[in-house]
């Protein structure tokens, strides 16, 4: 392993922004179409994504493998830190700790989220068209709604603060002023993206998605 962790850490940092950070933004926009365009809007966004060329290839090399690497290596990084916020309660040190805490929360949340959504599609238990209704089923339960809000906010924080560290680690923001300004921008990103995500979560609880579910269920029953 000698001499390799510089590169593995750099790769970890890069993958967090490209593609994973971009994917978070893309995911936010797709979900947001549920808020803006309702069921139709959401379904057309899902369809648009599934119609992308090489979609399976993109999913594996653009999302799944980077996620696996970033997640597993990230857990190792989190394990290596000896957090000392009680002695050094400085803003950036708190962010350092939160980055690791939200990383672990995000990891657990994403594994569960992938299992209950994308993986069920793979297994054939769910179709892409049923996703909206499926989300409605989940998010109508207050406990799951809260879990989703926590998971999403943690993921967005991890991304936004990670963007700040990325800029430092690649030597883009060097001086204290540059780092301070970029921290304001990154926190702005955090607030904005979290808000849009939460709005879409709320949108999924709307009767529109539920009604569709009932119809599906009804037709399912008639057919059955």
């Amino acid at each position: 392993m000698k001499g390799t962790s510089f590169y593995s850490r750099k790769l970890h940092s890069l993958l967090g922004i490209i593609p994973l950070g971009l994917f978070i933004l893309e995911h936010m926009l797709t979900n947001y179409s549920a808020f803006e365009g309702g069921k139709e809007g959401f379904n057309s966004s899902v369809k648009f994504l599934n119609d992308l060329p090489l979609v399976t290839f993109l999913e594996i090399f653009g999302i799944f493998l980077p996620l696996l690497y970033h997640g597993v290596y990230g857990l190792y990084i989190a394990y290596q830190a000896r957090n000392n916020v009680s002695n050094y309660s400085y803003g950036r040190n708190i962010m350092f700790m939160l980055q690791r805490v939200t990383g672990v929360i995000t990891f657990i949340f994403v594994v569960w989220h992938l299992y209950t959504t994308r993986f069920q599609v793979t297994l054939g238990n769910l179709t892409h068209e049923e996703l909206g209704q499926h989300m409605n089923d989940i998010l109508s339960q207050p406990v799951y709604f809260i879990i989703y809000v926590i998971g999403v906010v943690a993921a967005v924080f991890h991304f936004s603060n990670g963007l700040w560290s990325f800029l430092v680690s690649w030597g883009i923001t060097v001086g204290p002023r540059a780092q301070r300004v970029s921290s304001y921008i990154c926190m702005g990103v955090f607030v904005l993206v979290s808000l849009l995500f939460i709005l879409s979560l709320v949108a999924f609880t709307g009767s529109e998605f539920e009604a569709a579910g009932l119809v599906n269920l009804a037709t399912g029953m008639i057919n059955g």
């Binding site: 000698k2 001499g3 390799t4 510089f6 050094y88 950036r92 040190n93 350092f96 980055q99 680690s169």
Partner: peptide, 17 residues
């Protein structure tokens, strides 16, 4: 860039304080 080098920094910035 060797093992234990600069990549170990996690930006807690306690040092400068």
């Amino acid at each position: 860039m060797e093992e234990g080098g600069i990549e170990g920094c996690g930006n807690s910035q306690n040092c400068v304080r």
